[in-house]
């Protein structure tokens, strides 16, 4: 077990969907226009219940971002090793020096947490504000949140606010049963919507290898070389826009109570 596992523990029932977190993140991380590192999803009661009004009309807002998973499908999809789980703190990082911008990791993420940076030509996503953390500050989305719905910290440090919240509350994780990546994003109590994560999609060569190869082979040099060649070829052929879920307003979900 890692000594440090950074995680977010979120009380989504406190979220008012004000988008302070999404704007704070964009400024802090210079996220380009049309792209987002985090989001707020909506769950609304159905039309019949809304038509009745009264007591049974609660909606729910769910803040999210990269879940920094235990079993990250993005890491598996990355042909160059640019996407990796940082052993120092358990976060999932993209090494900009290694990323070739092939975009294989984008559909491999069930949560739409990754986008291809149009100028840098590499993949970008939440890194828990690594530059802020280096200065001893909390992630921008956490400090700016009006209702402090987002809590951040080391789950393995029992004194951290995140760990205290985890210990004191039952939590749920949001994942697709077919691609359960064991996210390090925990929602206190219940949350909604739940049905939005998609099944991780791997680029063909990777998924074939993933099926055939035993886990030990993953470190093999031969596979690396093959992956790099395939992906470099793909990058040349691919259009600029990789498929990605972006606009947070359009990420509304069907009702989930």
């Amino acid at each position: 077990m890692m000594k440090t596992q950074l995680a977010m523990v979120i009380d989504s029932s406190k979220c008012i969907d004000c988008k302070a977190c999404t704007v704070a993140c964009k400024v802090e991380n210079q996220v380009p226009e049309g792209h987002w590192r985090n989001w707020v999803k909506h769950a609304e009661p159905d039309a019949d219940r809304l038509a009745r009004g009264g007591k049974d009309t609660a909606g729910h807002f769910q803040p999210g971002a990269c879940m920094h998973c235990e079993e990250p499908t993005c890491v598996r999809a990355c042909p160059t090793g640019a996407t990796y789980k940082d052993e120092a703190d358990g976060s999932i990082r993209v090494d900009s020096a290694l990323c070739i911008g092939c975009g294989s990791c984008i559909p491999a993420c069930p949560y739409g947490a990754r986008y291809r940076h149009p100028e840098k030509k590499i993949v970008d996503k939440c890194d828990y504000c690594s530059a802020r953390r280096a200065r001893g500050e909390l992630p921008a989305c956490v400090v700016t949140c009006p209702t402090k719905a987002r809590t951040f910290g080391n789950l393995h440090d029992p004194k951290s606010e995140a760990a205290i919240l985890m210990a004191a509350n039952s939590t749920v994780r949001v994942a697709n049963p077919e691609s359960d990546t064991r996210p390090n994003m925990y929602y206190i109590g219940a949350t909604a919507p739940l049905n939005w994560p998609v099944k991780a999609q791997f680029p063909a060569p990777i998924s074939i290898w993933a099926k055939l190869a035993k886990p030990l082979i993953w470190g093999a040099v031969g596979l690396n070389a093959l992956g790099v060649l395939v992906m470099l070829g793909k990058q040349v052929l691919m259009a600029d826009d990789a498929p990605e879920a972006e606009d947070p307003e359009n990420q509304k979900e069907a009702t989930h109570g």
């Binding site: 400024v27 210079q30 020096a97 100028e119 590499i122």
Partner: peptide, 10 residues
């Protein structure tokens, strides 16, 4: 690949 990153004038 490392040289691909550019500045981002947000």
């Amino acid at each position: 690949a490392a040289t691909a990153g550019g500045r981002t004038p947000v």
